[in-house]
Structure formats: C-alpha cells, structure tokens
C-alpha cells in the first residue's frame, strides 16, 4: 500500500523520505506585533483594517500577502505550487477561497478551526510523499474582528468575558513544503481523532480541546516509538493558560510527563502576560503565525532541532453552540526536525 516513502503506524505516518519545509512566513496585526513574538513576524500591519472596506477583506488580504511572502522566501513563483491548501474561520472559508482565486492554483479548502494550518501541513506532506506533488503551499489565517462577530457578539458589544475565554489572533501564516533538499524536514505526522467530553461552555475552548490534544500526543509518542523528551519543544495550538494546565494534568494521568519548560502553548506565547486577552490567543492565525514565524526561525537558526506541533481546533459553530451541543475537539500533530 505504501510507496516506500512512508510508514503508517495507527493514525501516524512516519516519513522514511521526509518532505522539506522549504520556507515559511508569518504576518500579524498591531496587537500581535506588540507581543513578545513581535520580532518574529515578517510583516506587521499598523491597523486592523489597513484601509480595507471590511475586516473580512482585511483577513483575505493578510492571507494573500503571507502566501506571496512565503513563495518569495522559497525562491519560487506562484505557478510552482502544485496545490494550495488553505483554511480560515469564516463561514464557508471565504477568505481562503478568495485567496485561492487570486493565486489561481489547484486548491483544497480546509477547516479544522485553530488546527487548520497543521491539517494543511499534514495533507501537504502526504501529497508530497505520495509523489502527487513537488511543491505545496499551506496557509491559514484569522482576524479578531471577523471571528468575534461570527462566533460571539458585535465587536463593540459590552459583554463581560470570563477569565478562561480566549482572544482571536489577527494573524496569518503560510509555508511552502516540497520534495527538494532543505534544513527543516517534516519527519512524522499524526492525524487527530475528534474527541468530545461534553463541554458546552464556548468560553472555555481550552477545556474543550485539551482532551483531543492529550489523545493525539499519546498516539503520536506511542506510534512513533519516542518519548516526550525526544523533542526539544512540544507546542500546543491555542489551548490557552487554562487548557494548557488541563492538558498537562491529562497527560500526567496517562503517564506522560511533559517538561514544563519544553512544553509551550501558542496562545500563551503570542501575547505573553497581556491581561486583556484573558487565557491567551486563539484562531487559525495563532498556530499558523507562531509555527511559521517564531518556531520556523528558531529551527532555521539551529536554536531548536526537534519540534512537535500539535494544533488544536474546536469544531463548533454559533448554531451548534446555541442548540446546546457540546464542543468536539481535534488535534493534528506534525514533527519538524533539522536533519
């Protein structure tokens, strides 16, 4: 069944001929620029709308610019991309569809909420390893003002948010992956299963997604046959401070002890100690920009050698939430290594 480039172990695929993360780029808004990772963005907008007529147009513009930046950094042109895999948070993932219209390359639209960027990397690397493509562009982005009004309330509505709520990141990230040689290799991927323990509080996404993260981490370590110490850094995607604590607890109960200093969460990293974001950042753009900005740079500089990124997504909609359905969580993981 496999072509010799991949070995499958349960829900993990381990590459014997690993695809390369050729280049990556990240852009963000003003609040993200002021955060501790500000210097790791390739471009920062001074304004959340930057002259666009709507925030939705701004989100699309961010995605398009970050894609063009990643392609330029990879030394390619748009037409070199065999596939464009992209997703966002908006209804019918319009920001991605409109970006695909501009790029005019074979396109797959993805949705895994905040885990979308990593879902793209997984599918992209499997496509590369299968021999179906040579170069693939993966991207994802989100905008705080578009997500706020779609999932919660109008932006200026005065609602008192609880301490475990999270703030949607205004950012986007893009990566070019391919079969050629390079510094950073995608050595293994683990596709998440949907886990739902019945959490209905849409202000506690961390609590809803943490079990999915624990499930994927357990599967990945077991199926790849490595311990958590194998990685210099394990990164969860937007569990926030509350979800991160729950994740550590859940894994500890399963006998997996993550080193406090070598396990970080994108949602906690991106804004640092900023109290105005409550438990931390969230949104497609959070994992995308932290992975393809901050983490990519640290891998390139050799500061990190092995990183496991397990992005988490909450698969709810405003309708499902109002109809009192619980929140299904998913977590997709990808191992990036310098070889």
């Amino acid at each position: 069944m496999m072509n010799g480039n991949i070995v499958r172990q349960g829900q993990s695929w381990i590459f014997t001929v690993p695809p390369t993360l050729i280049a990556a780029a990240a852009i963000g808004g003003p609040k993200e620029g002021k955060g501790p990772l500000g210097a790791d963005f390739d471009y920062l907008f001074a304004d959340n709308r930057d002259g666009q007529e709507s925030f939705e147009q701004m989100e699309q513009k961010m995605l398009q610019i970050v894609c063009e930046m990643a392609i330029a950094k990879a030394g390619c042109v748009v037409d070199d991309m065999d596939f464009f895999l992209c997703g966002d948070l908006l209804n019918q993932i319009t920001s991605s569809g409109f970006t695909a219209r501009a790029l005019s390359r074979p396109y797959f639209g993805l949705f895994a909420a905040c885990a979308t960027a990593i879902e793209g990397v997984i599918l992209g690397s499997l496509l590369i390893a299968s021999g179906a493509a040579n170069k693939i562009m993966c991207a994802a982005g989100s905008h705080t003002c578009t997500a706020e009004r779609q999932f919660r309330y109008p932006n200026e509505y005065g609602c008192q948010k609880p301490p475990q709520s999270q703030y949607t990141t205004t950012a986007a990230g893009a990566a070019v992956i391919g079969s050629e040689e390079g510094t950073i290799k995608i050595t293994a991927v683990t596709t998440g299963r949907v886990v739902d323990l019945g959490v209905t509080d849409s202000f506690n996404m961390g609590g809803a997604m943490a079990p999915a993260f624990a499930d994927t981490i357990t599967a990945h370590l077991l199926q790849r046959g490595v311990s958590a110490d194998y990685y210099d850094l394990i990164l969860s995607g937007d569990l926030g401070r509350v979800g991160r604590d729950i994740a550590l607890d859940l894994l500890y109960r399963r006998g997996i002890v993550l080193n406090e200093h070598r396990y970080v969460d994108c949602g906690c990293l991106i804004y640092g100690d900023d109290k105005s974001v409550f438990a931390g950042g969230s949104g497609c753009g959070c994992v995308a920009s932290v992975s393809f900005g901050h983490i990519y740079r640290r891998l390139m500089s050799g500061e990190l050698n092995r990183v496991l990124i397990a992005a988490t997504g909450a698969l709810l909609s405003p309708t499902s939430s109002q109809q009192k359905q619980s929140i299904p969580g998913i977590s997709h993981a990808v191992a990036l290594e310098r070889i």
Binding site: P163, T200, N204, V242, I246
Partner: peptide, 24 residues
C-alpha cells in the same frame, strides 16, 4: 429545545480544578 449534554463524569472535576472561576 435540546437537552444540554453533561461533561464526562471523570473529566468534570479536572476541568473544574483548573478553570479560573468568574470573580462573582
């Protein structure tokens, strides 16, 4: 009206132990 699902009984205490309650 749909009946609200319950948090898994083993998970409920964990989520409550880590959540920051609203400062009521």
């Amino acid at each position: 009206m749909v009946k609200k699902p319950k948090v898994a009984s083993w998970y409920d205490p964990i989520i409550k132990a880590h959540g920051t309650p609203r400062p009521l």
